[in-house]
Amino acid sequence: MGHDHDPISYPNLRTQAIESLLVEKGILASDAVDRVVSAYEEDIGPLNGARVVARAWSDGRYKTRLLENATGAIAELGISGMQGENMVALENTAEVHNVVVCTLCSCYPWPVLGLPPYWYKSPEYRARVVVEPRAVLAELGLEIDESRELRVWDSSAEIRYMVLPERPAGTDELAEDQLAELVSRDSMIGVAEARTP
């Protein structure tokens, strides 16, 4: 930290001040900080959620279990953890499209999607997607037909949501790991569809 000669930003200084005081007082474990950061940078991310979606697309009975008890079905793939203790999966269909938000802060299903992107935490998304979801999704390039119900899910208590996007057409021949490559983070929040091959 601080090896270059750029001016150090105030948040950076403030963070260093807190870290150095906590180390000095014997309260902070530096190795824990390092390992938590690397876990969320390297191991815990939307590739986990993509595996869940690809399994649900490939295996009808798994999909049923996912929609009935998402936490248990996700754990079948060895995925669990903090901010994913009580999961619900929301299925997109021809009649219903789902989109997830946390208007009060930035609650997000960490074990399947990792830490949330900046836009998900922004006041713009949190304030607007509940009241004008069609307009917000259209701005992001996703037009939801008036004939489809657009359900907005505000993660205001302890449930964490992931969207099960529709399986794209023309993917009948694809294996599960190929299907997983079509599943973007944004499609599991509900602001995009899965990619087509």
């Binding site: 930290m1 930003s9 948040p11 950076n12 963070t15 260093q16 807190i18 870290e19 906590l22 309260i27 902070l28 474990a29 824990a32 900080v33 390092d34 938590v36 950061v37 969320y40 940078e41 991310g45 990792g114 830490l115 992107p117 900046y118 836009w119 922004s122 713009e124 998304y125 607007r128 997607v129 917000v136 701005e139 992001l140 944004d186 602001v191």
Partner: peptide, 26 residues
Amino acid sequence: PVEIERDEPVFHSEWEQRVFGITMAT
């Protein structure tokens, strides 16, 4: 408007990493 940053990193700077880690540790 809501602006999606393409290929966004998990953290945008080292101090963000430290703040996240210090919070989880405390």
